[in-house]
Design a protein around this nucleic acid. Structure first.
Lengths: 188, 188
DNA sequence: CCGATTTGCCTAAAGCCTTTAGGTAATTCC
DNA sequence: GGAATTACCTAAAGGCTTTAGGCAAATCGG
């Protein structure tokens, strides 16, 4: 019997792709086993549980996203950096809806990898904020504001909330980024 | 055999309570049947499917939330109204985590009830914006900004994202509302 | 008030997903 | 090349969803 060459890594990667195709919620150990042409029970040597699989997918997505954000931020500052960061998140969510959903999957307590990825993300936002003049604790407030707004917009948009009203969601987006830029510039 | 007196209404209500107790994702037709001391199949005369049950719970939550927001907004304007609205959402999410999660449950296409509830919510935000001086399309942009930020903050907060850093999430919140107030006042 | 209809809840059963236990075959290592 | 490890398998138990078909309780018409 030929072996499929399963590893935790490959399962997480394939799971991420599957999530983009059929939706994160439809990613199951069974579906993944089917894709690999392998019995379901076989996957349990590589992942502890269904939740474990999902956490691994979340970690893949979180890391990928941080990598792309870091690349986009290189050589940019101020409004330019803010806009680039926000666009990376939004584009990623559109291109990889399943992975983006995975991003929000946190079981009871986050794994060390998830904590680390979270730290990386907030570090990237802080990098953007270097272009504005904020000191603690205002800087942390601003990190939270930016994270909330960007994340919230992407989520509402992908839920279709903005789809039935003018102006188009694509038009509002840059104006909202502009507004955030203005706000940061004049943060009391 | 005594009847349990099941109806779609009662199931949605009980489902909402169950969601707050055990988490929205753990709300199943089975669990609900268990609570009513009734066979699982019996519920299928009242709800079309598991997704249908969840949509009903979502509608209960959305409506409740809109009611509370409307009450809180009465007699308030400007920053006062903004803060009151934001607090209603946040308090509701803390008090009813399962229901709040349900709020985001939208199957393929939203039901008329969900569309209506969504309209009510955006109407409430527009009511807050009457205290600021915005005309279209800026007003729609502002509705989206406020919705995104409030919603995003609550979600990140409830995921524990702000739990391990100073200042406390409770301290950031009013400052972020202040920042939004300032931003709306000076919206170009 | 009683028979007929409707309605509410039941049993049965099929299908899919998760997870554990224990076995066999392929690979790796000395 | 034989021993140990590793990869995948079969089997089985338990939970959730959903459909089909049945009996009994409530309701309604005469």
């Amino acid at each position: 019997m030929a072996r499929a060459g399963l590893t935790g890594e490959r399962l997480a990667q394939a799971g991420a792709e599957l999530a983009d195709e059929v939706g994160f919620d439809q990613v199951t150990v069974s579906a993944l086993a089917r894709q690999f042409g392998v019995q379901v029970a076989s996957l349990y040597s590589h992942v502890r549980s269904s939740a474990d699989l999902k956490v691994r997918i979340a970690t893949v997505a979180l890391t990928e996203l941080a990598d792309q954000a870091a690349a986009a931020l290189a050589g940019r500052a101020g409004r330019d950096a803010l806009s680039a960061l926000a666009d990376v998140y939004r584009d990623y969510a559109r291109k990889h809806p399943g992975r983006y959903t995975a991003t929000r999957f946190v079981p009871g307590s986050p794994t060390p990898e998830q904590v680390e990825a979270g730290r990386r993300h907030s570090e990237l936002v802080r990098a953007v904020l270097r272009g504005y003049d904020l000191d603690e604790p205002a800087q942390t407030d601003a990190v939270r504001l930016l994270g909330s707004t960007i994340h919230g917009y992407i989520q509402l948009e992908s839920a279709g909330t903005f789809a039935f009203t003018e102006p188009s969601s694509d038009d509002s987006w840059p104006r909202i980024i502009d507004a955030l830029d203005t706000l940061l510039r004049s943060w009391s």
